[in-house]
Design a protein around this nucleic acid. Structure first.
Length: 605
RNA sequence: CGGGGCGUGGCGCAGCUUGGUAGCGCGGGUGCUUUGGGAGCACUAGGUCGCAGGUUCGAAUCCUGUCGCCCCGACCA
């Protein structure tokens, strides 16, 4: 390909809309253009990158025996109603684009394809003899993200590889799950990305085991907690740890009421009375809204030095209260103004204790008039603690739980923090880093197959629901994550395996016939040697071409310049800037081994 | 949705406070010169100042409404 035919439009200034390096570079390098919030055109240069990623993904998926397919993006609401997800995905904070057609039928634009693929499985797969089956597709997905951002990182329209497997039993599911884990590691390694696999929350998709693949990067939206010995890594949403031991309460402090004027926060209490935050009981009031049910007030107890993990709380609520026909729509802290409009008497926020009586909910118009009471296990061990007295400006020093009120149901609700001891080895302390989620694999179990009545006949002749797994890779996100991980002050440094071109031949002076003819000759030879080569034949000055080559990030550059008359060229590596002069006749021999190594991706360590 | 900010030639911005001929840099076109790290000179094209109302003799500027976008939080590949 010649640059003069590439429709290459690079920008000299940073576009105002872009915040992070990868987004800026993709815009400046002429890879993407924004069409609407979270909606981007993939320009020819990026499409080449995406095609290379897709090719790697296909090879590795095919290698596992998965079958490529293409499922509809326009999906009937009825299918989603059967799985119980239509409400959750369209109402409230739902992310599914949906529409009504001319016949008044409701349709959704596919954010994911469990429903469609499960319905197909129900139709096509009748016998255990046909199992296991794994279907995958590479396709545009639509999600009306609450806040699209960072270019392709969180778009409302994006490219995803999604795969779904169907099994006769959990063992077969576990086998495929493991095969996918291995395939994913190969895919990211071949793309030249440093990734870490972490335990993950399975979120809205549902299911049991789940693992995410994170591209490590400062700007990642996810926080990863891991142990230095490499035995444990998890998304903070999911991470577990030991709470650091609670500090003792001063034995001279007597049990009973403490006046705490204006000291409605852990910090203020601790400062005024010397109570260790780990001995102060934090009581949070939240409201869980379920579709079609009265809102449920939730009272959560945590140690004062710990933070609530909202994902864990949501999961606990769903596990205890929700069912598919009443999905959890929203979980929010209860605000003072809300109490009034609900008809509930004001509560002494900042001075709440776990003994707060259900009677305070008596006037509630729409809420359930009984708290769901949950506590993190770290509070159970406190033999003495400080908590609110449920009176303004008063706290209590209490001799343990039974003395005050029964211990609420214990559920892990804490956010694990960097520095916390690990469960597998308390000597190990969790450390934090940030990551961009590029892949996620789940063992779904029978959630969808049961909801959609997708059954097969077992060897014993009985009918059973399929065991299912699902496996996603954010292809367009991966491309941008690669830029985030591989760039410098001058531009992108694509890994060879996914670079739009492997090498660019730059003619320093387009007026010089020697340079032109040598460059043309090399261009021909390189193409004949199956090198993915770009020829910068524009009538620009050398400086402009060098800047553009660096910006768009072609891994190798051959400069045909002053030495052309004597057959000499310069070979430059983009990442290291290392350059060498060599006879043009030696170029292929010098370059090819390095190119071939680069095409393999990261070396496996 | 809550909070913050921005909409002025293709891109980056100034002008708005204090209403009065719409500007700068980059980019585009033509010509000459230049030619190994975003060239110089000359000429040139290109803007309903997001949109709709209002105030005013007069609105990019003031007021009201509306739409779009970006950033911080709740969502996820």
């Amino acid at each position: 390909m010649r640059v003069s035919h590439l429709m290459l439009v690079t920008l000299r200034d940073d576009p105002a809309e872009a915040e992070i390096a990868s987004h800026r570079l993709l815009l400046r390098g002429g890879y993407i253009r924004r069409i609407a919030a979270g909606v981007y055109a993939y320009l020819p240069l990026l499409w080449r990158v995406l095609s290379k990623i897709n090719a790697i993904v296909r090879q590795e998926m095919d290698r596992t025996g998965a079958l490529e397919t293409l499922l509809p993006q326009l999906q009937p609401a009825e299918l989603w109603e059967r799985s119980g997800r239509w409400q959750g995905y369209t109402a409230g904070e739902g992310i599914m684009f949906h529409l009504i057609d001319r016949q008044d039928r409701a349709l959704g634009l596919g954010p994911t394809h469990e429903e469609v693929v499960t319905a197909l499985a129900a139709d096509l797969l009748r016998s255990y003899r046909q199992l296991p089956v794994c279907l995958y597709q590479i396709q545009t997905k639509f999600r009306d993200e609450i806040r699209p951002r960072f270019g392709l990182m969180r778009g409302r329209e994006f490219i995803m590889k999604d795969a779904y497997s169907f099994h006769a039993d959990p063992t077969s599911l576990a086998d495929t799950y493991l095969a996918m884990d291995q395939a994913y590691r190969r895919i990211f390694q071949r793309c030249g990305l440093r990734t870490v696999a972490v335990e993950a929350d399975s979120g809205a998709i549902g299911g049991s085991a789940s693992q995410e693949f994170m591209v490590t990067a400062e700007v990642g939206e996810d926080l990863i907690l891991s142990s230095p010995d490499g035995c444990y890594a998890a998304n903070q949403e999911r991470a577990v740890s030991m709470a650091p031991p609670a500090l003792p309460l001063d034995p001279n402090v007597s049990t009973g009421v403490v006046a705490t004027p204006g000291q409605g926060s852990i910090a203020a209490l601790s400062e005024a009375h010397g109570f260790a935050p780990s001995r102060i009981l934090k009581v949070l009031l939240l409201l869980a809204r379920f579709s079609g049910l009265p809102a449920q007030p939730v009272l959560v107890c945590l140690r004062g030095d710990q933070q609530l993990n909202e994902v864990k709380l949501r999961n606990a609520l769903v596990a205890t209260l929700a069912d598919p026909s009443h999905p959890l729509l929203e979980l929010l802290p209860i605000a003072a103004e809300q109490l009034e409009s609900e008809g509930v008497a004001a509560l002494p926020f900042g001075f709440l204790g776990p003994q707060l009586d259900d009677a305070v909910l008596e006037g509630a118009n729409h809420w359930r008039r009984q708290f769901l009471r949950l506590a993190d296990p770290s509070v159970a061990e406190l033999d003495r603690f400080v908590c609110g007295a449920n009176q303004l400006n008063q706290h209590l020093v209490v001799d343990g739980w039974p003395a005050l009120t029964p211990l609420p149901e214990l559920v892990d609700l804490r956010s694990a923090q960097p520095g916390d001891p690990c469960l597998h080895d308390p000597q190990q302390r969790l450390v934090a880093c940030r990551g961009i989620e590029v892949g996620h694999i789940f063992q779904l179990g029978r959630k969808y197959s049961e909801a959609l009545d997708a059954r097969f006949t077992t060897e014993a002749g009985t009918d059973e629901a399929f065991w299912m797994g699902c496996y996603g890779i954010g292809v367009s996100r991966l491309a941008q994550a690669a830029v985030e991980q591989h760039h410098d002050g001058k531009g992108i440094c694509w890994p060879v395996a996914i670079a739009p071109f492997e090498l660019i031949v730059v003619v320093a002076n387009g007026q010089d016939p020697d340079q032109l003819s040598l460059a043309e000759r090399l261009y021909g030879e390189l193409r004949a040697a199956a090198v993915d080569v770009l020829l910068d034949d524009r009538s620009e000055r050398a400086g402009v071409k060098f800047k553009d080559a660096d910006l768009i990030g072609i891994p190798w550059r051959v400069v045909v310049g002053r030495g052309a008359a004597t057959g000499m060229v310069e070979l430059v590596e983009r990442v290291s800037h290392a350059s060498e002069e060599l006879p043009a006749t030696d170029l292929l021999a010098r370059l090819l081994p390095r190119l071939v190594a680069g095409r393999r991706g990261l070396e496996i360590s």
